[in-house]
Design a protein around this nucleic acid. Structure first.
Lengths: 243, 243
DNA sequence: CGCCTCTTTGAACATGGTCAAATAACGTGG
DNA sequence: CCACGTTATTTGACCATGTTCAAAGAGGCG
């Protein structure tokens, strides 16, 4: 059966066939969650670590004014809260954006993996470091680029990340996120996201209809928003496209 | 001799006296670096992992337009590039902001630590997870708050981080950063940082002169910018101030 | 004292925000 | 399959926060 987690960790290059089998066993207890449901709340001390196997989720914080800021997008294969094992308490919440399938892995299973499966441990460590790299890129994106390029950059990133788990074609992918979600990720208003999307369409860079994002010219879009893939630390084969 | 790294890792609560001695030995090869010097460049594959022992450094990226975005502030006790051991290549650069003392720890030493000193390993892991938490908070800060509160929030964070390594008093600390540096951290222009600082002063929240930041009323400043300490995962004792 | 860097000021401008309403798309039950 | 209520996208007019450019003051350091 298809398993985005294995597919993703495999990108690290650390896994062997045995490891893949081990991971397969661990990810068998699945759960279906409706859109816009909280998976974990800020302050929680969960007993289980969750992994997204299908759908999109996000890390977010609610600030005093009631504004939501989304600090990370979780796509199939991503861990939700591996770090809680060490830090103890969640400093942010996680919610589904679309319908999601998740797996719960007990803390003891994680401990078993880290004790007895050094390559898997290394792959997990690798995955969290990539998440950190993405956070840094988002920071630079928000801080330095105008809205339309921010959005373009986010799409470029998403495209590559989905490619690496086999969920995107060479020039398009399913985009079930709402404009509000994009707005909350980039610190913009939905209205302005809407207008910027129109500019991107008008510039002939992409189309977005019926929840499908089609990139008309990948190179041109990447140049437009100054997108480089290095922060995703892809193995050459996954890059999907030249450069 | 005073060692900010040990002081910081000690906050994790994982270390024993033996571990502290081990760390002391490892951090003996020191180096002095002038302000505004690169410690590592994007694309580098360093053989040594560096730790800041005194002064301020930063992680940054240079984008196409030549703009610099600072994605993290490294204060005494912070690791520069622990992650390169796994990811291989730097996806950002690191530079000093002030004169810094650093230590270089060879990759083999790190491997020894992770193989034979489980509590130290756990503390290192803990430190990188806190860095990740800070990244998330910065994202929300930039995305959702107006300039003056962004700056106030940054100061509140810095205050607590410096307190935890013994480099701040209960209401003030040395602030050698330039307004350009603040601007590059928050995605603002130096001009606007300047004006926002004036507002903070006018509001009686702080004073900033001769490179010293004095917080006039810590609680009031924290309320002003909606600062909560939870994302820093402090042990109760280090919080320094109530709440 | 003089140079260089950093901070401060001013005025015009632009990007993105606010509020409110209209239109379109979606999903569910009949 | 259609009708309806709900949720999402789109539009318009006005406003505000933050930017740009340029120049004048302060401060630090040899």
């Amino acid at each position: 059966m298809f398993n985005a987690l294995i597919r993703k960790l495999d990108c690290s290059g650390f896994l062997t066939e045995v490891d893949r089998v081990t991971l397969q066993k661990v990810t068998s207890r699945r759960r279906e969650v409706a859109p816009k449901r909280d998976l974990i709340l800020e302050g929680d001390r969960p007993e289980y670590v969750q992994v997204v196997l299908s759908g999109f989720a996000c890390r977010y914080k609610l600030l005093r004014g009631g504004q939501r800021h989304i600090m990370a997008l979780l796509v199939p294969g991503d861990f939700c809260d591996l770090h809680v094992a060490i830090l103890g308490q969640m400093d942010h919440a996680i919610a589904t954006l679309t319908t999601c399938t998740t797996v719960e892995v007990s803390r003891s299973t994680i401990e078993d993996l880290t004790d007895n499966h050094p390559r898997i441990t290394r792959a997990l460590w690798w995955a969290t470091l990539i998440d950190e790299g993405i956070l840094r890129e988002w920071l630079a994106n928000m801080g330095q680029r105008p809205a339309d390029r921010q959005i373009a950059h986010l799409f470029c990133e998403l495209h590559v990340r989905l490619l690496s788990v086999g969920l995107a074609g060479p020039s398009g992918f399913s985009m079930p996120l709402r404009q509000v979600d994009l707005a909350d990720m980039l610190g913009l208003t939905p209205v302005h996201v809407n207008r910027s999307l129109q500019e991107l369409r008008a510039a002939g860079l992409l189309t977005l209809q019926r929840r499908w994002l089609e990139v008309l010219d990948v190179d041109r879009l990447r140049t437009f928003c100054d997108f480089k893939t290095n922060y995703l630390h892809l193995t050459p084969r996954v890059d999907g496209l030249k450069t």
